[in-house]
Design a protein around this nucleic acid. Structure first.
Length: 470
RNA sequence: GGCUGGGUAGCAAAGUGGUUAUGCAGCGGACUGCAACUCCGUUUACGCCGGUUCGAAUCCGACCCCAGCCUCCA
């Protein structure tokens, strides 16, 4: 257990060493982080979003601590699944990938994710990939066979140490038929031939397209250099994707210099008892969820568990997240006004130490949330001076986690306070009836408004109010 | 079969040798004409069996169960 938390250092759990380690960038004040983004052949589901939200939160924490954070999240826009989707629908690949890239970016923005510093599209880096492949061939880590270029797994003894697998002990049977042109069953594709009707690029090995793993090696090298500080992604990418990516990248650098100083992996969302996955048909896509919930509700739900563990996703979770979040909104909103902000929009207070410390401890968002809830309660308990300071601290702390954005608060304010004339009139009527102690009448009006989805608040001597939390 | 993680109250989820996690839900109270909101209090816990210890949910050992990866996957 890190004793040095009090020193203000960030500790992160590294998949490769299976240890929580103190993080420091290789270059002081400049952090490089690469996170695997989506393959854009469909709308993303909430499980995909978890990865984006988790690493966005880490990005925010890093930005809070370091002057510069070069954060890259790629878009895979060349892939067999894209080709298959186009064959089914008849749509051109570029049109399909552009559509789903835009959808992804809109969805992630709705979830409060900041735009990464770079969002490279794989198809813009084909040259870089070919150059990597060429170098791997020259270094005898790759070979050509029947229009394919394959990475030779036995050529690098370090293979398997990220995912802690002994390649020889993996279940050999019941998999895809081992391609006859592979020297070793474990070898994987760097470049594969494309038929005339498939997307492809001319290369020294014929017209073809890159394998999945080489994309990330090439783009991270191109944009962030070598090595990088942090490589992130879902835990289902550890093997084979990150294992392969690491093998390629390390073999491009003499086979001895480590590629990523920290490997971070977020856990899976489960729906019922199973992992949420397209292949199981149990997905909830972000687009549909956003029709029923705010982006911040989804974000709160996704961050309510520690990023490395599984999270049981359900409508109940969303409902409780929404209630909890709206309660915090009400704590921040005073007299139907948004809280004060400084010019940067960061919020007027400082981040609470009780929120910050858990984040430094391997991004413990549940503990940070617990601290925020305590701040909120403390603020509600305080009538005056203390209240404002606590509100400011709460707001700034939430902002750090990508919550309480100006837009979200304003939208909430608008949605809950924007009462039509009929409702206002009924409220007034009810206040009048109450003043006359005509409670049968006042309660009838209240029941009517509640039936319409309003919550009624009596304010003592002041006029009563209604909001509609939706 | 190999490799990872898990099993904490109604639900979700932190914590990890002795001290309230937290949120939602429930219950009781204050407030209220009654409610709601808010606040205060509070009921349900640490898979099973042993062991170590003054003390274990937390450490050790065995066992049971669950999930993920080994094939595209966040």
């Amino acid at each position: 257990m890190p004793d040095d938390l009090s020193t203000g250092n960030l500790w992160l759990f590294d998949t490769r060493t299976r240890k929580k380690q103190m993080f420091e960038p290789a270059e002081p004040d400049c952090v490089t982080m690469y996170v695997c983004g989506p393959t854009v052949y469909d709308l993303v589901h909430i499980g995909n979003a978890r990865s984006a939200v988790v690493f966005d939160t880490l990005y925010r924490v890093l930005r809070h601590q370091y002057k510069r954070v070069d954060y890259v999240r790629n878009i895979t826009d060349i892939d067999d699944k894209i080709i298959a989707a186009c064959e089914r629908s008849g749509e051109a690949p570029q049109s399909l990938t552009e559509r789903y890239t835009a959808a992804y970016q809109a969805d992630m923005q709705a979830l409060g994710c900041l735009e990464p510093v770079h969002t490279p599209h794989a198809t813009d880096y084909i040259e870089a990939m070919m150059s990597c492949i060429e170098r791997l061939i020259q270094a005898d880590h790759a070979y050509c066979a029947e229009g394919h270029v394959l990475f030779s797994v036995p050529s690098w003894p370090g293979y398997g140490s990220l995912s802690r697998r002994n390649p020889d002990e993996q279940l050999a049977g019941a998999r895809i038929d081992p391609a006859p042109y592979k020297r070793d069953d474990k070898d994987f594709v760097l470049w594969k031939p494309s038929s005339d009707d498939q997307p492809g690029w001319e290369s020294p090995w014929g017209r073809g397209r890159p394998g999945w793993h080489i994309e990330c090696s090439a783009m991270s090298l191109e944009l962030l250099g070598y090595p990088i500080d942090i490589h992130g992604g879902g835990s289902d990418l550890v093997f084979p994707h990150h294992e392969n990516e690491r093998a390629q990248s390390v073999c491009l650098h003499s086979g001895t210099h480590e590629f990523a100083r920290f490997w971070l992996h977020n856990g899976m969302l489960t729906l019922g008892q199973e992992k949420m996955a397209k292949s199981r048909g149990n997905i909830r896509n972000v687009r549909d969820l956003l029709a029923e919930h705010t982006g911040e509700t989804l974000r709160y739900a996704l961050l309510s568990a520690h990023y490395r563990g599984p999270l049981a996703f359900s409508d109940k979770l969303l409902a409780s997240s929404r209630t909890a979040l709206f309660r915090l909104y009400e704590t921040l909103i005073e007299d139907d006004r948004l809280p004060n902000e400084d010019t940067s929009g960061a919020g007027a207070g400082a981040v609470a130490d009780t929120v910050w410390q858990p984040l430094l401890d391997d991004l413990n968002t549940p503990r940070a949330f617990a601290a925020m809830n305590k701040l909120g309660r403390e603020a509600n308990r305080n009538a005056d001076e203390g209240r404002q300071a606590l509100q400011a601290t709460l707001q700034t702390s939430g902002r750090l986690l990508g919550l309480f954005s100006h837009d979200a608060l304003q939208a909430y304010l608008h949605a809950t306070r924007n009462l039509d004339a009929r409702v206002l009139a009924r409220l007034k009527e009810r206040d009048k009836a109450r003043a006359l102690k005509d409670f049968a009448r006042s309660d009838a009006i209240r029941d009517e408004l509640i039936a319409d989805g309003y919550e009624i608040f009596d304010m003592g001597a002041a006029p009563s109010r209604a909001i509609r939390p939706g």
